[in-house]
Design a protein around this nucleic acid. Structure first.
Lengths: 204, 204
DNA sequence: TGTATCATGTGAAAAAAATCACAACAGAGA
DNA sequence: TCTCTGTTGTGATTTTTTTCACATGATACA
């Protein structure tokens, strides 16, 4: 089981979306179809698929259902991943409501916030809890992942606290760079950068 | 003016966040500081910075203010980019409220939706407009960019319509792959993939 | 049954990205 | 003033990623 690069993860996830929504009902799909839709080289698609251990069929392509399941397995979609959201603002709310998360095993347990008007209420069926309780809850149910959707000014402070509480992975939706110990992984969901990359595509 | 790769754009944007929030007040910053915070090689940081045409100072590093401005210029943060959001659900709402967009020149003009309960209302200070009016508005004010935040089931249909209306760039927040003509660019904001990449970091 | 076709699977080559290594030299401090 | 240090800037190397090219062989169809 070789490690697989982020680029491959990204593409496999897109193939999976494609199989899930675009190819509904089709029994087979060719690498060239996937490649055309995503503007990739077809041999690259085949190599990605090979990493999932799926074999295609000459003159037919890949079995959609099998390929979809193999991607799910390879990327661990069916393993349950419990997550807390810190910051019950509109982005936190949007993520709680992101319906597809459950198909990927991403299970949001609760939201945390400091705002007394929000604490105790429910958003998207999940309870909003006082940030003070984070420490307690993390140790009790051993949560490793948090989604950070607080205002940028508060990001580092909240991060320090979360790290102290034992968090291991921080999915950072704030436009800030976080100072964390080496044992903690920050993944930057750099929304603005995405936009710039999109615009760049016009030149490239 | 050489074209610059998406990876570089991504990193430069992060450097910019860092300069904006983390380094407030400091006059200088060394490539090694940036590298440490972002877990990169310092020579890579220097090469990225060189692409912006900024020169550093021996034994001191880069002038924070100058570097920040140069990144803004290189990535075109100050050029105004007008955008429509299609889909006034919770994700659309979150993006309208994303305060930092304006610092990057991203200007959301309006939201579009089919829901009669939403049409005519305001979200985050922007008007929600009937999707039917998209064609008209696009041709009148020549909008090129849309943010797509509709439910995945509706994504392709709305995309077809938007393309027909003359849209050039689609920032796709839905977990779907879109069929578009070669003249249209889709940028996939593959939220789930980000999470998987984050988890992957534990192994890598 | 035979043949032509078309999609796979994969080595080899090319391109892109990152790392290494170090000369240069400005600045700090004795 | 002199020396030492720390940081830049960059050429060379390595690693990673992508593309190219094509042999293989299953399938459709006559």
């Amino acid at each position: 089981m070789t490690a697989i690069s982020n680029k491959v993860i990204n593409r496999l996830t897109l193939y999976h979306c494609l199989l899930k929504y675009t190819c509904k009902g089709k029994p087979f799909i060719a690498s060239s179809e996937i490649a055309d839709l995503l503007d990739l080289d077809d041999s690259l698609v085949r190599k990605d698929i090979a990493l999932c251990g799926v074999l295609g069929h000459k003159k037919q392509g890949y079995v959609v259902d099998e390929l979809k399941k193999s991607i799910e397995q390879k990327l661990g979609f069916s393993e349950r991943k419990e997550v807390f959201i810190i910051g019950a603002g509109s982005l936190g709310t949007a993520l709680v409501n992101y319906a597809d998360f459950k198909d990927y095993g991403i299970d949001i347990l609760a939201l945390f916030d400091n705002d007394p008007n929000k604490i105790g209420k429910e958003i998207g069926g999940k309870r909003v809890v006082s940030l003070e309780k984070l420490s307690n809850l993390i140790s009790r149910i051993n949560i490793k992942n948090i989604i950070l959707t607080v205002p940028p000014q508060a990001a580092q402070e909240v991060t320090d606290y979360a790290v102290q509480c034992g968090v291991r992975f921080i999915w950072n939706f704030t436009p800030t760079v976080l100072r964390v110990p080496k044992t903690v992984t920050v993944y930057y969901e750099n929304i603005v950068s995405s936009f710039m990359q999109m615009q760049n595509a016009s030149i490239a």
